[in-house]
Simulated scan of single mutants.
Amino acid sequence: MDNWLTRETLLIQVRNRYDEKSWAEFDEYYRSFIKMIITRMGVTHHDAEDLTQQVLLSAWKALPDFDYDTNKGRFRGWLCQVTGNATKNFFDKRKREVKRHEKATSDRSLDYIKTYNQADIEQIATEEWEVYISNLAWKNIETELADKVREAFLLLTQGKDPADIALELDIERNTIYVYKKRVTKLLYNEINRLDRELG
């Protein structure tokens, strides 16, 4: 992750459909985020895998004509719209299939389907983005941390008492708060960096 492309450079490069390296990087950064939105909208795991692939294919087709302009909004807003539209189309298609088989009144397999407007989808995407970017930030910084620093921070996030953590790790209680402050700052900076570069 250290030598990744910036968002702008990546988006310019993926407009070339034959740049496999850039597409692999695009897939790595955005696939799980897309799937998080789709799953949150109520699509089952198996269908979410297929639908995520469809969204990535739609993006692959649309990005060569995508006009990257930060003044017009964030890239993830566009990606959210593509994802939301694909998911709504999936739900519409599934409903039509059920009606065609005259199961609409008795088949409960579609109980999970809800109606989402664009504001709902944007809210879901915003919440899932925060989770996604936080997890990615932690993944990026955790290998830079000393073992005890990492363990102390993780134990704190699990709600363990600092006194118990101090005993478990054989460190001073005040040291735990120093570790927490250090890791929180690193995490905050990395989240902001990722949000600028990928958002």
Score class of each variant (00 low, 15 high):
26 F>C: 00
90 F>Q: 00
8 E>M: 08
112 Y>M: 14
181 K>Q: 15
136 L>C: 13
101 H>W: 08
194 L>C: 06
195 D>Q: 05
30 Y>Q: 04
55 V>R: 01
193 R>K: 13
39 T>Q: 10
137 A>T: 07
59 A>Y: 00
140 N>Y: 07
150 R>C: 06
104 A>Q: 09
33 F>S: 02
85 N>E: 07
12 I>Q: 12
178 V>E: 05
168 E>W: 03
162 P>Q: 05
190 E>P: 05
129 W>Q: 04
136 L>Y: 13
96 R>D: 11
100 R>D: 07
171 I>T: 08
124 I>V: 05
2 D>A: 10
197 E>D: 09
66 F>C: 05
140 N>E: 11
11 L>I: 13
184 T>N: 13
106 S>C: 11
86 A>S: 09
145 L>I: 05
24 A>G: 09
100 R>K: 11
149 V>D: 09
30 Y>S: 02
28 E>F: 11
72 K>Q: 14
153 F>K: 01
79 L>Y: 02
79 L>M: 11
160 K>Y: 14
31 R>S: 09
107 D>L: 02
190 E>K: 10
176 I>F: 04
41 M>H: 03
180 K>S: 12
103 K>R: 13
170 D>I: 08
189 N>H: 08
25 E>K: 15
14 V>L: 15
123 Q>G: 06
80 C>W: 00
16 N>F: 10
48 A>N: 02
141 I>F: 08
198 L>W: 12
14 V>H: 07
139 K>I: 04
42 G>L: 01
31 R>K: 14
30 Y>W: 05
184 T>K: 14
36 M>W: 11
109 S>M: 09
31 R>E: 00
142 E>Y: 14
104 A>G: 09
199 G>E: 02
33 F>C: 03
39 T>D: 14
90 F>A: 00
16 N>V: 05
180 K>A: 11
64 P>V: 13
146 A>Q: 13
119 A>T: 14
4 W>G: 12
67 D>I: 15
157 T>I: 10
82 V>C: 03
188 Y>R: 13
138 W>T: 01
